[in-house]
Design a protein around this nucleic acid. Structure first.
Lengths: 345, 345
DNA sequence: ATGAAAGCGCTAACAT
DNA sequence: ATGTTAGCGCTTTCAT
């Protein structure tokens, strides 16, 4: 493979000049510039990003550590992060922690050893904190951790708009499939649910706690949880599920109980995964602006290298996406846009 | 950040010795080895993978270029590739071509410039050929291209077992939703379908061509195709769909036509995406051994650097995964294992 | 504006 | 068995 030295020699200039040309340094005579470019083209010169990075200590790559790319939300996140990165000539190194904190820690070590310019991390469920002795900037996505910058949605606001939507449809008894307590995302969604549902339940003398079931985010747990809710005496007429997977499980539970959706029971989900549009009936859900999350996350983590890495929290709004909306999520689908950014802490 | 030089100095040995210790070179006194290790630990030494790679011309990273990680099949592939790579201390750089050959070509350039040790590519649908002037070994996955090694499944065999499954259930009129003609995967699946269905159709005097509809692999196209098939006079009693997305679309089409599945019409899919287990009723489908594909692809592409890169074709068997199978795909789910490897070309 | 030279952090070839 | 030294390919001072 031709090196910059080969190019310089062929062009009859010094190595330094050839390098300047490759880096668009304006301090080069157009004439020489031409010669160098011609030589490079003739040799099919490809710069060695490794050497470049070693010398300039910028690899133009970022690491992305998340529990599992096959999860629809994380997959979309991975794609968007990669696209944003590619747009500014960055490469992304992908790592699946499988929700194993130890694997996560190893990946942090491995990727920082590879000198990535930044690390984007969706921490494992059980992760309490991350190694502080890494010199590479870290920005968290979706799941906050004390002392680290994070980019995430207004989950509480999203839940509020979803439950308000159900209220506006006339529902008063609205059950909740809450997510795991230890996930902030789940807690915030539950908070949003309570914010809307608690006053209504109080007014009617209903028992809020009885209409809430805690379940993991997956399909099967959603199914089980919905079975519990829907076989209660005075069953809820609507269910707010904390994830689309749960909601789809609930859909099936309703079908198994011979309850029509939305005739007998209404169900809303959260996340707007592709699948939400494919189930019968389509799911009303809350969309996260994943592209925006990715964009802000990438910019923040790369910016952190320059400025002093102050911990900050980015909050992005969510969108309620009604089941009957067609096409991609967009402004035209907005029924409510709850998420004015919350005060930065 | 501490360098190997710092470690050497603190341990009171030469730089070379410290390096040997870090590389597990046996030619070092256990005693010195101890000293170096202790020094490294005290300095929290992290080797600089960049410098190491520059010098040894092995980056311990591979590139993975595919159309779209959010596609369930590619997402699973990305995950498995990453896991296999991590197991041998390799990192993977992910790139989404979005089925754009130009983007694909750019990624090839960018990743090879980053000196990846190998490139795994799922080519774009329209890609006819890939640049030959890259020095990094390339191995294709799932979609073959003349002159390149490829790792893929026995799609024909998988289709055969799927259609035979339908035959064994008593079906004679079996419609086919075929994939795009220009995708080898689609052609092979269609071939498998014909292999089983054609003789039956001939024997009964049915019109095979009339029961085949070509459609893209996605949900909507599957829906449209199934509508056509199921509204024909003498409609088929079963449908072989070339993808799970198509099959799920067909499921909906059947529902819209008030046809019970599997009472009025049986439907089988292909790929065994997670979703196949979540739809109602569950889908019978053909599973690809994605972990095995990933394993062979990674090993092949890394091996290609050593040996002479001869073009080879790896064929892996598929598994028929009945709808009633529970748990992950495994041997216990095997109804037929059709895929003895085809002769290598 | 250009050239010469130092050196990023490391491995590997060569000494001893 | 250990130390010394020469680069890997490039960017970036420092001269001129």
């Amino acid at each position: 493979m031709a090196s910059i030295g080969d190019v310089a020699r062929l062009a009859g200039v010094s190595l330094g000049t050839a390098s300047r040309v490759m880096n668009d340094n304006p301090a080069v005579t157009p004439q020489l510039r031409e010669r160098v470019l011609a030589a490079a083209a003739r040799l099919n010169y490809q710069p060695n990003a490794l050497a470049r990075a070693l010398r300039s200590s910028r690899t133009h790559s970022i690491g992305l550590i998340l529990p599992d790319v096959t999860n629809p939300f994380f997959g979309e996140l991975a794609k968007q992060v990669e696209q944003v990165a590619a747009g500014i000539n960055y490469t992304v190194m992908l790592a699946n922690s499988n929700d194993d904190p130890e694997a996560e820690a190893n990946y942090i070590k491995a990727l920082s050893s590879r000198q990535v310019d930044g690390l984007l991390i969706v921490p494992c469920e059980e992760t309490k904190s991350l190694p502080r002795d890494v010199k590479v900037p870290i920005v968290l996505v979706d799941r906050p951790l004390r002392g680290f910058s994070v980019v995430q949605c207004d989950h509480r606001g999203g839940a509020i708009s979803a439950v308000q939507h159900l209220v506006s449809l006339g529902h008063r008894r609205i059950g909740c499939i809450a997510g795991p307590k230890h996930l902030s995302v789940a807690r915030e969604r539950y908070e949003g649910y309570r914010h809307v549902a608690a006053p209504i339940y109080a007014a009617h003398g209903f028992d809020l706690a009885a209409d809430t079931v805690i379940a993991r985010f997956d399909y099967d747990c959603g199914y089980e949880a919905a079975l519990k809710l829907l076989t209660r005496p005075d069953r809820p007429t609507a269910i707010f599920a904390s994830s689309d997977q749960q909601a789809i499980g609930a859909l099936r539970a309703a079908a198994d109980l011979d309850l029509k959706v939305p005739g007998d029971v209404s169900i809303v989900g959260f996340d707007a995964i592709t699948l939400a549009k494919l189930v019968t009936p389509r799911l009303t859900t809350v969309a996260q602006p994943i592209a925006a999350i990715a964009d802000i996350a990438v910019r923040t983590v790369l910016h952190a290298r320059e400025s002093d890495a102050k911990v900050e929290r980015h909050r992005l709004p969510t969108l309620l996406q009604p089941a009957n909306s067609s096409g991609p999520v967009g402004v035209e689908n907005v029924v409510a846009l709850p998420g004015r950014a919350r005060p930065q802490r």
